[in-house]
Design a protein around this nucleic acid. Structure first.
Lengths: 212, 212
DNA sequence: GTCTCCTTGTGATTAATTTCACAATGTTAT
DNA sequence: ATAACATTGTGAAATTAATCACAAGGAGAC
């Protein structure tokens, strides 16, 4: 299985964060070796799917034994591009912005929240979780000065498109969008939509099939 | 296309919340009729995919004209099981729990947050966004009293499995889990994982392919 | 009413993904 | 060193999903 020649299925990439999650758990428990069957059961998938997924990245396992947890963790981090630290800015210091600013999970995965941006004058100049809050007008300057790459949009839906335009203008490479709207941005800007409502509606759909 | 006989693809179901999102947008703009091509462009999918998806639910469109926005919205809400209101409880009144308690998007989709649960004595007895905070010990009683159905888990990862056990014990039907861990629960309990880290890591992967 | 135009709905086709089944190959015990 | 065993890695088969292409049918003009 030579890398570069083979295209890696989107479906495989989408599962890598899950693998990262359970492997991190095993790592914390001090487990060094794990079989595809164990991981698969934990995730509710088949072991052959896990093995097929991992096979795209070369022979990572040890036949007869399983996978080395540390080794596999490193490999997945590499594939996901997590070796390099990324600098984020949160746009919108409301409830959700505040929650994300204080979320340790980001830091733990190499994601550094360097700045918050707001229009509310009362918040500007203060900090949240030691992260300074700047006026939105400073977005272009601070983007360059701090080397910001990813913009986290936690603004009201009515403002989201306008803020997205500013973010693109300021030179961000990617947007992590929490507003329930499809943003229109140039093709070279990466957008990841984090639609919480979509998630819970999937749950509601299953629930209504279960209990009516 | 007779309903009941045909199985609806999972992929189709997973797109319904997106359709709901853009249709709601059109509805607010006062647009009453929309073509599959318009919706598809907004979502970055093909119009034939949209039409195929909708075809599973019967002839919802008007040939030569498009789809009636209001009518289609109603139908999608029905399919997703959104007609009935659902009662939620947020377990963990930290930053994320607070953010969700004040999030209007839930209310707008028929999801009523009736209670928060905490172990921190300082928070118990107070309210967040007019929602009372109860001690975790009252979970079983309040679940019955308030008719709670969906538990939103916004507790630290170290506590998540234990809290999930309590939630199942208390009689909840479903769990919306924000902790980055795969919960082990009985088969009849619905779990929807909302792993924010997974979302942003997908973004990081794309970013590292783009700029290294 | 008829003709033209437009957009849906869908069978057929192609592509993507998952599962199967087993050969390959490493581990462990003796 | 050899045998018995366990688990990976992977072609082939099966399943699921997306796309194509066009017939069906409703809207609007005149």
């Amino acid at each position: 299985m030579e890398e570069g020649l083979v295209v890696i299925p989107k479906a495989t990439i989408s599962r890598l964060p899950l693998y990262l999650q359970v492997l991190t758990e095993y790592h914390h428990l001090g487990i060094t070796l794990v079989s595809s069957e164990e991981i698969a059961q934990k995730l509710g998938i088949t072991s052959s799917q896990l093995r097929k997924d991992l096979s795209y990245f070369g022979g990572l396992g040890i036949r007869g034994a399983g996978y080395d947890v540390t080794c596999l963790l490193e490999k997945i981090k590499e594939i996901l591009g997590m070796q390099k630290k990324r600098r984020l800015a949160i746009i919108g210091a409301g409830k959700m912005g505040t929650a994300l600013a204080g979320y340790h999970g980001l830091q733990q995965h190499g994601l550094e929240v360097k700045a918050l941006f707001e229009i509310d004058k009362g918040k500007i100049g203060t900090t949240i979780a030691n992260i300074p809050i700047y006026p939105l007008a400073e977005l272009p300057d601070q983007t360059v000065r701090l080397g910001l790459e990813i913009a986290v949009l936690t603004v009201p839906v009515a403002a989201a498109q306008k803020v997205a335009d500013l973010v693109v203008e300021a030179g961000f490479e990617a947007i992590w969008n929490f507003a329930p709207i499809r943003l229109e941005v140039p093709d070279n800007i990466i957008v990841q939509n984090e639609d919480l409502v979509a998630g819970v509606l999937t749950l509601v759909h299953h629930l209504s099939r279960k209990i009516g």
